[in-house]
């Protein structure tokens, strides 16, 4: 049986034509698959690059480069990215949160956002009552900080009871730990430097006008005690429409 089965199958052979066709088709299919693989790899690489670029752009977009602290009481902070867009709006105390919620400021340019805040009903009413508006620009990127300061100084130039100044971030880094906006915290530090006994909680509840009055009082009394009187009362917040770089002594 072994012999018969072997003899029965032996004549069945792969013809040369079949081999030739197979060789041609297989090589063509293999080349096609290779091209497809290269194409897929290229697409994957391109998609990967796009994702990476998107991630980098998102990272850049959502990285803060400056903060504009607008304080009257309410207090509001606008976090600005390198593209001059507002990427976060934080209100302090209930009235600050209400003001932040009432204005649609996210992703606007900082100039549009500042204009909206300064011309908002809440802020104009405060200014009409004689409150003090402080706009502090916290610089993380110095060039942008200068630019923002120039803008806010320019746009509030004709307004009474307004001060605009730049603040180094490291000097007010603890502000949020005390529940204060950067601008308010800077005045709080100045009051501390003058020997004031104000707590952060008390400062949070006070308007900027009240804080500046407190600072002036403390400054005057410190000047009275210090006969040299070289710095007393010269706190930089006096007068109307102070614009420039603020200073503080804590």
């Amino acid at each position: 049986m072994e012999h018969k089965i072997a003899e029965a199958f032996r004549p069945i052979r792969a013809e040369e034509a079949l081999k030739a066709r197979t060789l041609e088709n297989v090589l063509e299919a293999a080349a096609r698959r290779r091209r497809l693989r290269v194409k897929r790899l290229s697409l994957c690489a391109a998609a990967g690059c796009c994702c990476l670029l998107l991630a980098v752009l998102c990272g850049m977009y959502f990285t803060p480069t400056s903060v504009i602290s607008i304080d009257v009481n309410p207090s509001l902070e606008l976090t600005v990215n390198r593209f001059d867009r507002v990427i976060a709006v934080n209100g302090y105390q209930e009235d600050g949160e209400a003001l932040a919620a009432s204005l649609d400021l996210l992703h606007l340019s900082y100039s549009q956002a500042v204009d909206r805040v300064v011309t908002s009903q809440t802020v104009t009413e405060c200014l009409a009552r004689g409150e003090w508006l402080s706009i502090a620009v916290v610089e993380m990127d110095e060039a942008q900080g200068e630019e923002i300061l120039q803008y806010v100084s320019h746009c509030t130039a004709g307004t009474q009871n307004v001060s605009c100044h730049a603040v180094a971030r490291e000097e007010v880094a603890q502000a949020h730990d005390h529940g204060l906006s950067y601008g308010k915290y800077q005045v709080y530090l100045d009051i501390c430097a003058q020997g004031g006994t104000l707590t952060a909680q008390e400062a949070a509840a006070m308007t900027m006008r009240e804080l500046l009055d407190q600072l002036q009082e403390d400054g005057l009394s410190a000047a009275g005690e210090d006969q040299s009187g070289s710095q007393g009362g010269q706190n930089g917040w006096q007068g109307q429409g102070f614009h420039g770089r603020g200073h503080h002594g804590c």
Partner: peptide, 24 residues
């Protein structure tokens, strides 16, 4: 991926076996 030479050699050696099993 194998080369054309490898494919040709494998076909020379095993094409008949593959064909017989296909027929089977």
């Amino acid at each position: 991926m194998r080369s054309e030479a490898e494919l040709t050699r494998a076909m020379e050696m095993h094409a008949d076996t593959v064909k017989r099993i296909c027929v089977l």
